[in-house]
């Protein structure tokens, strides 16, 4: 389907021009890409089970939003969250080990692809029920206000979630209670196989913020710098003024909904067209033009990131399965008879 982009409000001109920052964004996006490519490979090799939803194509949205946060800020995500966890600083080893179902995984093999978690990194989880995590994210934001901290919550979800009741309950509560939260809608144009215009009466998701008198923005989710600039503003607004917002990032997933999706509901041309706007290539082209990066350096970064991903696979392969005697561990926080 066709979408119209809407320029983000007054992006600040001076931010995001130094080489170190741009290189960091580039490297993080490339890590998500290479990690997910390897994940697909491992899924096909039956090393990974269950459902597996890839972030390939959405790297600019992921890195542009999450890189604007501080370590103590929270991220709540969905079942398509490998990249979100990596961008929040969770080690690739622990993420890959979780996909492999190993004891060394982020969730000790109890969660899998859809339930990554790291309290230490304030990556507060992948949730597999559409829209479920928005009210829970509001709870963390309520706790921040309660304890008078200066942290922020980022609640990330897909376009499909914006049609469910929990989305509306959450936006209403966030505005009503002045919660320091940024709602990030990853609009990849399809909720599973159903296009946005076949599921939502309002196809420009940002407009749904208007119903709650909340800041709503739409940004080109394939442009990492544009995403980062608007996110910086919205995060600052949440942190300093306790004003929530809804950010719609228009992006695209190059692969199907999950690894088991034959992808018959959208044309090959559409996929190719979006790939011509690839976020990673766009940033490297821009940096080359500005003489910040050359092909040799690009290759070196790619080799380093690829080695990081290979090491994660090796770590996952060599890690032990959970011990069967621990089947009942952590059902409760204390010892409870069944």
């Amino acid at each position: 389907m066709k979408v119209e982009q809407r320029p983000a409000a007054s992006p600040s001109k001076d931010a995001l021009t130094d080489k170190a920052t741009l290189l960091k964004l580039y490297r993080e996006m490339l890590l998500v890409r290479r990690f997910e490519e390897k994940t697909a490979e491992m899924y096909q090799a039956a090393k990974i089970g269950g459902f597996c939803h890839l972030n390939i194509g959405e790297e600019a949205t992921i890195v542009g939003t999450i890189s604007a946060l501080r370590p103590k800020d929270y991220v709540y995500s969905t079942y398509r969250e490998h990249g979100h966890a990596l961008a929040k600083g969770v080690e690739p080893n622990a993420v890959m080990a979780e996909l492999f179902g190993k004891e060394t995984g982020t969730s000790h093999g109890r969660g899998g692809s859809m339930h990554l978690f790291s309290q230490e990194h304030r990556f507060y989880g992948g949730y597999a029920i559409v829209g479920q995590a928005l009210p829970i994210a509001c709870g963390s934001a309520y706790a921040i206000n309660y304890e008078e901290k200066d942290e922020v919550v980022m609640s990330i979800f897909g376009d499909g979630a914006t049609n469910i009741g929990a989305f509306h309950e959450s936006l209403n509560a966030a505005k009503l209670w002045h919660l320091p939260i940024v709602f990030v809608c990853v609009n990849n144009l399809y909720g599973m196989g159903t296009a946005v215009n076949r599921a939502s009466a309002v196809t420009e998701i940002w407009k749904k913020a208007c119903a709650y008198d909340m800041t709503g923005e739409r940004v080109d989710g394939m442009d990492v710098l544009a995403v980062r600039r608007i996110t910086d503003q919205l995060v600052a607004q949440a942190r300093e003024k306790h004003e929530p917002s809804l950010l719609e990032c228009v992006t695209y997933r190059y692969r199907g909904h999950s690894m088991s999706d034959p992808d018959t509901y959208r044309g090959k041309d559409e996929i190719k067209e979006w790939q011509t706007r690839d976020a990673i290539l766009s940033l490297s082209d821009q940096m080359k033009k500005q003489k910040m990066l050359d092909d040799q350096e690009i290759q070196k970064i790619d080799e380093e990131v690829t080695a990081q991903v290979e090491a994660a696979v090796k770590f996952a392969e060599e890690s032990p399965d959970p011990d069967p005697k621990d089947l009942y561990r952590d059902v409760y926080a204390d010892q409870v008879a069944s």
Binding site: Q132, P135, A137, S140, A141, A166, N172
Partner: peptide, 12 residues
């Protein structure tokens, strides 16, 4: 939102 807020606050 009542139960969700309670869960998130409890986790925080």
């Amino acid at each position: 939102i009542i139960i969700g807020t309670a869960i998130g606050a409890a986790m925080s």
